[in-house]
């Protein structure tokens, strides 16, 4: 077992992928000598060279657009978008090209491109550095969208994403980069499939559905709720597209109450998709409507207000209370 932070787990995962397959490339702004602004690619250029760990010009559309070209030539590029709010210049290449080109080619083309995106708030950053843009991409057919919440998943999921022959948008919870855990890097038999959801805390009264940075918040809320005598189940979705419906629906049927928690604004957020699907599939098992906790329907606020904007333990518990009010 090795103790790794989430960022180091990603680093080790990418290192492993690069050792396993010479076609794997890293590309992005400052990913080389600096090792990325969060040091997630630290040391990789030194060990794999500038041809495989590419410091790119400062242009996100260029990063994804040239990654597509490299993939057409047989490479497996892993792109780093420096911050969530900077993915929008690349949105055209992601949505109109990366997601659609394989279908356009009737299957002749595969684009094994991973787009890594540090996401979410809670680090006191300036505007455009704290966003949660996942729903734009779950809405785009042709992409796989995943989010790790802990070091072990970071380590396995990044390797699985790189190995996928489909494009993967990989959201990393930046405020959890420094969380540490013991990881068995010597075996793979414990790895769950990339698109499997996980019950990370079993419970019987209510289900919390979360992914990325909110999983830890939900686990803390579940511990607090236990003191009030409520048994809270927490499901880490891990994958948003495709969604592991079996795990989600099984939990919803068992507890009868579901609260979805994400940092992104509630309005048209991924929680809306979950609420609709659960209502459709589990209608007669539900004791209350599926409730959603998330960011407000505003732009992300200045950092001195973010503690009010971001769902926290109390906001989650408030929603749990409401779920029992029906």
């Amino acid at each position: 077992m090795t103790v790794l932070s989430l960022s180091k787990a990603l680093n080790e995962g990418m290192r492993k992928a690069m050792e396993d397959d010479p076609k794997v490339l890293i590309m992005g702004e400052d990913v080389g000598k600096l090792g990325g602004v969060f040091r997630v690619t630290d040391g990789l250029q030194k060990d794999f060279g500038e041809d495989r760990v590419i410091d790119t010009p400062l242009a996100e559309s260029g990063i994804v657009g040239t990654a597509i070209g490299l993939a057409l030539r047989g490479y497996r590029p892993v792109c780093e978008i420096q911050f969530d709010g900077f993915i929008f210049p690349a949105a055209d290449q992601i949505i109109t090209q990366l997601a659609k080109m394989p279908m356009r080619s009737l299957g002749a083309i595969k684009l094994p491109v991973v787009v890594r995106v540090p996401c979410g708030g809670g680090i006191g950053a300036v505007e455009h550095h704290s966003e949660s843009p996942e729903a734009y991409f779950t809405h785009t057919a042709g992409l796989r969208v995943v989010s790790c919440s802990n070091p072990a998943d970071a380590y396995t999921m990044i390797q699985q994403a790189i190995r996928s022959d489909d494009p993967v948008i990989f959201f990393e919870p930046k405020r959890r980069y420094w969380e540490k855990a013991d990881i068995d890097t010597s075996a793979t038999d414990w790895w769950p499939p990339l698109h499997a959801a996980k019950v990370v805390r079993p419970g019987t009264d209510v289900t919390l559905l979360a992914y990325g940075p909110m999983v830890k918040t939900c686990l803390e809320a579940a511990t607090a709720a236990e003191e009030d005598g409520r048994s809270v189940e927490v499901v880490d979705l891990r994958s948003l597209n495709p969604l592991d419906e079996a795990v989600v629906m099984d939990s919803a049927r068992r507890t009868g109450r579901v609260v979805v928690v994400h940092e992104a604004p509630v309005n048209s957020g991924f929680g809306a998709e979950l609420a609709a699907r659960i209502t459709e599939r589990c209608f007669y098992h539900l004791e209350s409507p599926v409730l959603r906790v998330g960011g407000f329907s505003t732009p992300y606020p200045p950092s001195r207000l973010e503690e009010h904007y971001l769902p926290d333990l109390d906001r989650v518990l408030d929603a749990v209370d409401r779920a029992f009010g029906y």
Binding site: G65, I68, D92
Partner: peptide
């Protein structure tokens, strides 16, 4: 390559391909 309808997108694909070469 396939026809690209969105104007100019393919120039980046071509450069990436050239980097692969």
């Amino acid at each position: 390559h396939l026809y690209t309808i969105v104007i100019g997108s393919q120039t980046l694909h071509a450069v990436g391909y050239a980097m692969g070469i």
